[in-house]
């Protein structure tokens, strides 16, 4: 008995913090994986419309984004207010889309290429003219899987 009590008296009741770095690292890795670093600045104003029948886009690496909207104020002096297309981080016309798709495609492993989806992020106030032109180009370049990006509807 004496032996035991002596040992107890010495020990300081402290929580071990040795696993703290591990826990923090775990959180860190979680956030590293879910993080999407913004690819370049938005040069067109895009507020996608609302819809209810939404589907999630699964693999981020298989998605390329085409933005369509009016240039933001900063660029209106240069590019006017007509709806424009943004590919990557620059303004583009629909003639640049095939090259853009090709550049994305070569980064994707071959077996997964049929699953590539184009995400059309189109501002709600844009008219269908430019959207139809983009759709035609997509069809001509064989990119048939398209996702009309939308926000979930709040009401209903």
């Amino acid at each position: 008995m004496a032996h035991f009590s002596k040992k107890r008296g010495k020990a300081k009741p402290e929580v071990s913090t040795a696993s703290l770095p591990d826990i923090i690292f775990m959180l860190l890795f979680f956030f590293m994986v879910v993080t999407v670093l913004r690819d370049g600045e938005r040069k067109v104003k895009v507020l996608v419309p609302e819809a209810t029948q939404l589907q999630k886009l699964e693999q981020k690496s298989l998605v390329n984004h085409i933005w369509i909207g009016r240039p933001v104020e900063k660029f209106q002096a240069l590019y006017g207010t007509k709806p424009r297309i943004q590919l990557g981080d620059k303004f583009a016309s629909e003639h640049d889309i095939p090259l853009f798709l090709e550049q994305h495609k070569i980064k994707v492993p071959e077996p997964q290429r049929p699953q590539i989806t184009s995400s059309l992020k189109v501002d709600g106030d844009v008219t269908m003219g430019i959207v139809s032109d983009v759709k035609t180009v997509l069809r001509k370049s064989g990119q048939l899987k398209v996702n009309y990006s939308a926000r979930p509807k709040q009401t209903r």
Partner: peptide
């Protein structure tokens, strides 16, 4: 922000 939208299949040209 999860990317969501309406997926469609365009007809081939």
């Amino acid at each position: 922000d999860v990317d969501k939208g309406i997926t469609v299949k365009l007809p081939p040209w």
